[in-house]
Design a protein around this nucleic acid. Sequence first.
DNA 1: CGAGTAATGTTATAAAGTAAACGCTGAAAA
DNA 2: TTTTCAGCGTTTACTTTATAACATTACTCG
Lengths: 144, 144
Amino acid sequence: MNAEELLSQAKESCKKRGARFTLAREQVFKLLTRHSGAVGAYDLLDELKLIDPAAKPATIYRALDFLNKQGFVHKIESLNSFVMCHHFSECNHPVQLLICDTCGHVEEIQSSNLDLALRSMADATGFTISHQIVEAHGACQTCS
Amino acid sequence: MNAEELLSQAKESCKKRGARFTLAREQVFKLLTRHSGAVGAYDLLDELKLIDPAAKPATIYRALDFLNKQGFVHKIESLNSFVMCHHFSECNHPVQLLICDTCGHVEEIQSSNLDLALRSMADATGFTISHQIVEAHGACQTCS
DNA sequence: CGAGTAATGTTATAAAGTAAACGCTGAAAA
DNA sequence: TTTTCAGCGTTTACTTTATAACATTACTCG
């Protein structure tokens, strides 16, 4: 899906939910669509400063926080960085990422088997999952 | 498994592998066995300073790095913290954690279905996994 | 022993993330 | 229309997490 489609889809979502897709949020959203891999908050901040020299860490983190809550962006815990989600229309899907350590590309997969396996194991021990993190590091097809 | 058993097992492992289980590493290991949940590096550092007032961040991070490489300790990426592994005799097992956000307890599970589901999904896209992170947050049996 | 490697000590700093106080703004109610 | 107020943004300062660089010490093996 291309950048414009994503953007209009995001605007649509926000309108439906009564969430405000403000300028700051849109700018960060757009910056994120330019990357196919993980981007650090401070890298993003540097990019944002080119447009808005007054931007500060809080600017980025607030925007990322919002975009994350809306499901537009995922945080990659193992890299302390962020990645655009290309499936945010499917609400609240579990996040499963394949991260290439060579080229940096991040592929989001959707395996219900994986989700099921985790849930059933949790159930078996009486654990209730509220949020799951699945991140696989390695080499993508073109890099291996 | 109790603290002494873990400790002797760790010493054993190191001897076999020709790795040096030095004093600093043993001290950090022991501190970790006292916790049933995640511990931050700097919390651990504060504890270590009671024994060794000269300890510095590098002291802890080096010890953690070693213990992690030996498989004695896992890093919890989503909490930037660390947890003792109770199954390190089973070498190189994939790490799958259930993290209770209420009481802080961390349970390590072993689901080969989960591992399989992830690997097969990766295979399908030509991705080779070198390291995987699976962390589920939520509420444990006693807290829910 | 002595050479080479592994570990530690020490200092400084980078990178990532948060807090708190305050100001602005624009849409809804009076 | 004007008031009001919640949400958003700005700013400053700070905390937490992690690493780099380089000197020194300790261990191991020939």
